[in-house]
Design a protein around this nucleic acid. Structure first.
Lengths: 113, 113
DNA sequence: AAATAGTACTTGGCCATACATAGTACTTTA
DNA sequence: TAAAGTACTATGTATGGCCAAGTACTATTT
């Protein structure tokens, strides 16, 4: 039970939310997402992102099209589907509620007891 | 891949943080914690809480003493150890950074693209 | 043209946590 | 003594993040 491990655990589910949000803003491919996540200090590696995108695709929340690249192999450009947009809305609520709940607990002062 | 499941996933790791925080405010036993977590709508059931407390104990982050009860079997009253306090500090930082990162991503407006 | 490097995506296996469920042990009450 | 309630324990399942190795295509170097 160490900090590093807990950081991994805390990321669970939240990553999905962040990625759906990134996709919701316009068509992007995997490396774009990694760049943006890294810029926000939400480090993500390929082995995490690609399986997640596959899950989102299989659930019908996102779809993609192949686009040729001038500097390497073709890329999958993702965008949200209709169900994906509703799902993202739901996630936003869930996330906000979770923050609220956590705040309610962690902002209780020590002197209350 | 449904909302309910994602809520469960998002809770991962955060629960540990919340519980350490509750314990940090004074000696409590399991039912106290469940009450407070429920009040904050961070629903937790026995099957989640007890194993978590055992993990925290085995990691040396919390310790407990048995206290007789007037209405049932004896209770384990928990409190933080020294390492537990440092760990909680670390978790607080981790959580705040995670919120910051998420905000940075989700508050980017759709019109940027 | 062949070898090397770089980019994009894939796959299989591991680990930790939340949860459902069933069960143990003790105390109080009827 | 039996039933109900409280506190804690134990087992098995599902999921997601990550490591690591691998495939496939393109561009560059020799």
């Amino acid at each position: 039970m160490n900090l590093e491990n807990t950081q991994v655990q805390m990321r669970k589910g939240i990553l999905e939310y962040c990625i759906l949000h990134i996709i919701s803003r316009g068509e992007v491919y995997a490396s774009d997402m990694i760049d943006e996540l890294t810029a926000a200090r939400m480090i993500v590696v390929e082995g995490t992102l690609y399986p997640l995108l596959t899950r989102l695709k299989n659930s019908g929340l996102v779809e993609y099209k192949w686009v040729e690249s001038k500097s390497g192999p073709p890329r999958k450009y993702y965008k949200l589907t209709e169900p994906g947009q509703s799902f993202l809305q739901g996630l936003t609520e869930t996330w906000n509620e979770l923050i609220h709940s956590t705040r309610q607990i962690t902002e209780k002062s020590t002197t209350n007891v």
